[in-house]
Simulated assay, not measured.
Amino acid sequence: MVHMNQGQGETSYARNSAFQSAQQNRMKLLIEAAIIDLGSNTNTLLPQKVVIADLGCSTGPNALALVSIAIKAIQSYCLQLQQPSPELLVFLNDLPDNDFNMVVKSLVTLRQSKKPLVMIGVTPGSFYERLFTSSSLHLVCSSSSLQWLSKAPEVLARNHIPAYDIDEKARRERLPIVLQAYAEQFRKDFTHFLELRAKELAPGGQMVVSIIGRRFDGIASFHIWEIITQVLSVMASEGVIDKEKFNSFYMPMYGPSNEELKEIIHEEGSFSIREMLVHDFTGGINKELITPAWTANQLRAVFEQILVQHFGDLMDDFVKTSERCWSVEGRLHDELARLAMLTVSVSKA
């Protein structure tokens, strides 16, 4: 079960989601362009009813960010063309264990203005399954979510190959096998995601998504789950967590390169790419904030539930070990610099 830390406490996702918030801000221009493209596909006038879905909305202040950007873009577009605002139907989606109570309490902010009329619905479920009726959506957004896989690649567990060997020599030897297994699982999942959204989007529908990925192709590139597993491997080597449990831990997450994304989108065939951007992972965040302690809490808010389910109560030790591992000057920034935020805008072909 994957969900962010709930509530509004010190370790909650609501208070520790700065990386995700920065990425949502970088999606603004692409969402605005998608609204203009949607209008041009319908002879300048937007449909009388526009349906928007945010997939993987999570909770806290980020939950309404993307749909709020889309609503403001629609208002601006209609004002510029002096046309009536369409009625808006907004769907917020995430897995059933998401903190929807907090999301629902914040929905009133979307309905404060009577122009345009905004109706809101919550749609629990995996975005690796059908969520909406055929040809019903006009705009789909998703931020920092699609790096989560439907499951970790089963071939590794079946062959007793750890995702991250404690022994460095063994890790180097097995790395090509590990990365191929993860890449194949991502290709399967992302292809299925595109097929599902193609069925749900109306003709001319738009989709803007961001994914935590990596800058380069190849074995030497840094993968998103490494920043977690490196810390866990230290804990395992020091006896803080059981080595067998560490060897059987597979993060259901993969960070693609932009070339991988392009290739999968082209091969699936339902969408044409309007624009693809590659950003620094830490872009838009005050660099002075990015300390070992701050970063450890950001990671804790995202990964605590999945780590505790596998290892038990280890988060205080995880935070302390993270801070110690990243205390070497420049190491944390070097590791984060190898990650990237990939943003792609596509139109239904």
Rank of each mutant, 00 (worst) to 15 (best):
Val308Pro: 03
Thr133Cys: 12
Leu46Ala: 00
Leu66Ile: 00
Val51Tyr: 06
Val51Met: 09
Leu194Cys: 08
Ser270Asn: 15
Ser150Ala: 12
Ser68Gly: 10
Asp94Asn: 02
Leu179Thr: 04
Pro256Cys: 06
Gln20Trp: 03
His160Met: 11
Glu263Lys: 15
Leu64Val: 03
Leu117Lys: 14
Lys114Ala: 14
Glu87Val: 03
Leu232Met: 09
Glu195Asp: 11
Leu38Ser: 01
Ile36Arg: 13
Lys169Pro: 00
Val67Trp: 00
Val346Trp: 01
Glu154Tyr: 10
Pro292His: 10
Ser237Ala: 13
Leu201Val: 06
Asn297Phe: 07
Pro203Met: 06
Met251Gly: 02
Gln206Phe: 03
Cys57Val: 04
Val328Gln: 14
Ser257Gln: 10
Asp217Trp: 00
Asp334Met: 13
Lys169Gln: 14
Trp326Cys: 12
Gly9Ser: 13
Tyr13Asn: 05
Asn247Trp: 01
Phe311Ile: 02
Lys199Glu: 12
Leu64Ala: 05
Asn25Val: 02
Gly9Asp: 15
Asn16Glu: 03
Leu92Pro: 07
Phe19Leu: 14
Lys28Leu: 12
Tyr13Ser: 06
Leu107Phe: 04
Thr109Asn: 09
Val122Ala: 01
Asp97Trp: 04
Ser142Asp: 03
Gln112Lys: 14
Ala157Ser: 14
Leu336Pro: 11
Glu238Val: 00
Glu260Ala: 11
Gln75Phe: 05
Glu323Arg: 06
Ala18Thr: 04
His310Pro: 02
Ser85Gln: 10
Phe100Ala: 08
Asp316Gly: 09
Arg26Tyr: 08
Arg214Lys: 13
Ser143Trp: 01
Val319Ile: 14
Ala14Cys: 10
Asn5Phe: 08
Leu194Ile: 04
Asn41Gln: 13
Met1Val: 08
Gly60Ala: 07
Thr291Lys: 12
Glu260Lys: 10
Asp94Ser: 07
Lys320Thr: 03
Val118Asn: 12
Ala202Gly: 05
Lys320Asn: 07
Arg171Ser: 11
Asp189Thr: 07
Pro162Asn: 05
Thr59Trp: 01
Ala157Pro: 02
Asn25Gly: 09
Ala202His: 10
Gly7Ile: 02
Asp37Thr: 04
Gln6Glu: 14
Pro96Ala: 04
Leu307Val: 01
Ser248Phe: 03
Arg215Cys: 06
Leu95Val: 07
Thr109Lys: 14
Leu79Glu: 13
Asp316Glu: 15
Leu117Pro: 00
Met315Cys: 03
Leu89Cys: 11
Asp316Val: 09
Thr282Ile: 12
Cys325His: 10
Ala349His: 12
Phe127Val: 02
Asp167Pro: 04
Met102Glu: 11
Gln80Tyr: 06
Val2Gln: 10
Leu137Ser: 01
Pro256Phe: 02
Asp280Val: 00
Glu268Arg: 09
Phe246Ile: 01
Val178Asp: 08
Lys287Cys: 01
Ala157Asn: 10
Glu329Cys: 11
